Computed example of a mutant assay.
Amino acid sequence: MDIRNNMPLMVMPAMLIVVEVLGILLALPMQSAGVAAFEDPTSVANPFIFLGLLLAFTLLMLGLIRIGGKKVILGLVALSIFLTFYYIFWTLSAVVLGVSSAAFILPIAAAGAATAVLFLYPEWYVIDTLGILIAGGVASIFGISLAVLPVILLLSLLAVYDALSVYRTKHMIALAEGIIDLKTPILFVIPKKRDFSFRKEGMNLQQEKEERGAFIMGMGDLIMPSILVVSAQVFVPAPTLWFISVPALGAMAGSVVGMAVLLKFVLSGRPQAGLPPLNGGAILGFLLGCALSGSWGWLLIA
Score class of each variant (00 low, 15 high):
Ser100Pro: 03
Ser100Met: 06
Ser101Glu: 14
Ser101Ile: 13
Ala102Asn: 07
Ala102Tyr: 15
Phe104Ala: 12
Phe104Gly: 13
Phe104Ser: 11
Phe104Tyr: 02
Ile105Trp: 05
Ile105Lys: 10
Leu106Trp: 01
Pro107Lys: 07
Ile108Phe: 15
Ile108Arg: 03
Ala109Gly: 06
Ala109Val: 15
Ala110Pro: 07
Ala110Asp: 03
Ala111Cys: 11
Ala111Phe: 12
Ala111His: 03
Ala113Pro: 06
Thr115Ser: 06
Thr115Leu: 04
Ala116Phe: 13
Val117Ile: 14
Pro122Gly: 05
Glu123Gln: 03
Trp124Arg: 07
Trp124Gly: 04
Tyr125Ser: 11
Tyr125Thr: 05
Val126Gly: 08
Ile127Gly: 11
Ile127Tyr: 01
Ile127Ala: 09
Asp128Asn: 12
Leu130Arg: 08
Leu130Ser: 11
Gly131Leu: 12
Gly131Ile: 15
Ile134Gln: 08
Ala135Trp: 02
Gly136Pro: 15
Gly136Ala: 15
Gly136His: 11
Ile141Asp: 02
Ile144Val: 07
Ala147Pro: 03
Ala147Ile: 04
Ala147Thr: 03
Leu149Ile: 13
Leu149His: 01
Leu149Arg: 03
Pro150Phe: 02
Pro150Val: 03
Val151Tyr: 02
Val151Ser: 01
Ile152Cys: 01
Ile152Arg: 00
Ile152Lys: 00
Leu153His: 04
Leu153Lys: 07
Ser156Trp: 01
Ser156Cys: 01
Ser156Gly: 06
Ala159Thr: 08
Ala159Met: 11
Ala159Trp: 05
Ala159Leu: 12
Ala159Gly: 09
Tyr161Trp: 14
Asp162Lys: 10
Ala163Met: 09
Ala163Lys: 14
Leu164Ala: 15
Leu164Tyr: 15
Ser165Asp: 04
Lys170Val: 13
Met172Gln: 09
Met172Trp: 14
Met172Ser: 14
Ile173Arg: 04
Ala174Trp: 15
Leu175His: 10
Leu175Phe: 12
Ala176Val: 06
Glu177Ile: 12
Glu177Lys: 14
Glu177Gly: 08
Gly178Pro: 05
Gly178Lys: 08
Gly178Leu: 10
Ile179Gly: 05
Ile179Met: 12
Asp181Tyr: 14
Leu182Phe: 02
Lys183Gln: 13
Lys183Met: 11
Thr184Gly: 11
Thr184Trp: 03
Thr184Asp: 05
Thr184Leu: 15
Pro185Val: 10
Pro185Gly: 07
Ile186Arg: 04
Ile186Gly: 06
Leu187Ser: 11
Phe188Asn: 07
Phe188Met: 13
Phe188Pro: 03
Val189Arg: 09
Pro191Cys: 10
Lys192Arg: 09
Arg194Gly: 15
Asp195Gln: 08
Phe196Ile: 05
Ser197Phe: 10
Arg199Leu: 10
